[in-house]
Design a protein around this nucleic acid. Structure first.
Lengths: 186, 186
DNA sequence: TGCGGAGTAGACCGAACGTTCTATCAGAGA
DNA sequence: TCTCTGATAGAACGTTCGGTCTACTCCGCA
């Protein structure tokens, strides 16, 4: 087997589309994707069936990566569930402070794609559900009276952090959200 | 002076664009706007110079209306600054529970328009600044040690409410956010 | 050596995009 | 009545959109 100098067109297309669909939004043109990936037009339709299929696969891949980032941040914070949950906001502080941060990819996709039948919506829904479960597992260990509600509130703080980070680049929304989470988790 | 059965083309265009650019996103087509407003193509370019000008004017108008809604909710809540601030979330509960709620118009515009030079961005920035001032005025009356930070946190709760409302239509994010605000405001 | 599959390059399609244009019409004012 | 203004209808512009198609090239394998 020969070691590939560069990955195949499917992989290049996914990588380029993951970056471009975030930088420019999911309404980025097919030509821009093909040029950035240096891939023939035909390859897109052979591998993904069309632009929608590519966008869907990009969201699936990004979701897996992002969920891993949450899992890593939680795992690295020790055993105390409270510390593990607060660590999420420390990780988000890094994310929203990055110079190329442009908001939540999944909310952006949901808002940009008006057609409720677009496959992207189901993927974003599953992503949020997975993240919700991730948080719920930690919250449940805290033996709070209303764990479901607290989990929803943590989700709201995360969404608020990402939205505020996109809307008002100055400031540190993740720190503000973390302080609110500290109040929330006794 | 004759009483107009229907408003002029400029007004019709603004009304239709305000609705359509929210329902379908700011990337809605010009043809759809003209058809919905029942207005000649030329009128758009005479009144607004182009689609960007129309979108900008729509955002200006929507911002004025939305700020008025916040002001009204605050004013109707009496004199206690804490009650006035919490009333914002009661108002938001109505907003995000509406069947046609599709998230924050201004965040949607910012995410959809990749070009940072698009006039829409300045308008959304000013809108958030005005809303921030509105909240800051109430927060300042509470004599808290860190009023600026609390104001930022309230903004984050508002953004989080709108984002969560768009992303997870079930549930009552505004109530969750209100509970967090109650912790925040002693 | 020849074959088959995968990838590239690029022309091409119909449709939609934002924009500009001409032509017509209705109403108000001189 | 004549004219000017603002609106209408709609053709047409060039570009870009997503998608299909043909032709050529490359490479592993038999």
């Amino acid at each position: 087997m020969s070691t590939r100098i560069q990955p195949g067109p499917r992989e290049r297309l996914l990588t380029a589309a993951q970056r471009l669909s975030y930088e420019q939004g999911v309404n980025v043109g097919v030509d821009a994707l093909l040029t950035a990936a240096n891939v023939a037009r035909r390859s897109l339709y052979e591998h993904f069936g069309g632009k929608d299929g590519l966008i869907a696969e990009v969201l699936r891949r990004a979701a897996a990566e992002d969920l891993d980032a949450y899992r890593s941040a939680i795992a690295a914070a020790g055993d105390d569930p409270r510390a593990r949950l607060l660590a999420v906001f420390d990780m988000l502080d890094q994310v929203v402070s990055a110079p190329d941060f442009r908001g939540c990819r999944y909310l952006g996709a949901d808002l940009a794609l008006a057609d409720p039948a677009h496959p992207a919506h189901e993927i974003t829904r599953e992503y949020r559900q997975s993240l919700h479960q991730l948080l719920a597992r930690e919250v449940s260990r805290l033996s709070l009276p209303h764990p479901a509600r607290v989990t929803d509130q943590l989700m709201l703080l995360i969404e608020g952090t990402l939205a505020t980070g996109a809307a008002r680049p100055a400031g540190h929304p993740a720190r503000d959200a973390r302080a609110l989470a500290e109040h929330l988790l006794p």
